[in-house]
Computed example of a mutant assay.
Amino acid sequence: MRLVIGGSYQGKRDAACRLFSLKPSDFADGKTCAFEDIFRCRAIFDFHEFIRRFMQPESCLQELSENLAERNPRICIVSNEIGCGVVPIDAQERAWRELTGRICCQLARNADTVVRVTAGIPMVIKGNLK
């Protein structure tokens, strides 16, 4: 599993394509794909939006990292880092940020490679690109 993280509009998907030999057509869209698509696709972008859509019930997300490691171990997940800004007043928005952070921590633990992208520059923070 590969995880690519970073702020909004930092070039994460382009970096994932270059680093992991992916094409735009290899990606499922986290804003619109079906839940089961994550177990079949080569990659997913806007993973944070995937989490937002499937938060309720949370039970389907609690074991997501382990299920992905088992059912789709070569997936590349591209997600915004959403917990580094102003804390939202809305409780649902805070819950989404917290759940996204926790799931991304689990994914990073299970991932072979974790890359953080800032200003289009990928930095490997776990593993290697070989």
Rank of each mutant, 00 (worst) to 15 (best):
V114I: 06
Q62E: 10
E49N: 08
V114F: 11
I5H: 02
T118R: 12
C17Q: 15
Q92H: 13
G11H: 06
T32Q: 06
R18A: 11
A91N: 08
D26A: 09
V78K: 03
V87P: 09
N72V: 03
P122V: 08
V86A: 13
T118P: 04
E93H: 14
C60D: 07
Y9R: 08
R42S: 13
A69T: 00
F35Y: 15
D112M: 07
R13I: 08
F54Q: 01
Q106L: 08
V4L: 05
S59A: 14
G120V: 01
F47T: 01
C33M: 15
R116F: 08
F45L: 05
G83R: 01
P57T: 03
V124K: 06
E98P: 05
T100E: 04
K12Y: 05
I51M: 03
P73W: 11
C104N: 15
A91F: 14
R74L: 07
A69V: 02
W96Q: 00
R94Q: 14
C41F: 06
A119M: 09
R18C: 08
S59V: 14
N80A: 06
T113G: 10
R13C: 12
L3C: 05
C33G: 03
C41D: 05
V87M: 07
A34N: 09
A43I: 00
V117E: 00
F39C: 01
E81N: 07
R2A: 04
V114W: 10
W96H: 13
L3W: 03
I77K: 00
P73F: 09
I44G: 00
M123S: 14
T100G: 12
I121W: 11
Q92M: 14
T118S: 07
N110I: 02
S8A: 13
R74H: 14
P73Q: 04
E36R: 10
A28T: 04
K130L: 15
L129M: 09
M1Y: 09
R116Y: 15
M1P: 08
Q92W: 06
E66T: 11
C104Q: 07
I38F: 09
V78N: 02
V4P: 03
L19T: 02
E98F: 06
E58Q: 15
N110S: 15
R102E: 07
H48T: 02
Q10N: 07
R18N: 14
L3A: 04
A91H: 11
P24C: 12
N67G: 03
D46C: 13
R116A: 08
M55N: 04
A43V: 03
A16W: 09
I125K: 05
Q56K: 10
I125V: 12
I82S: 05
D26Q: 08
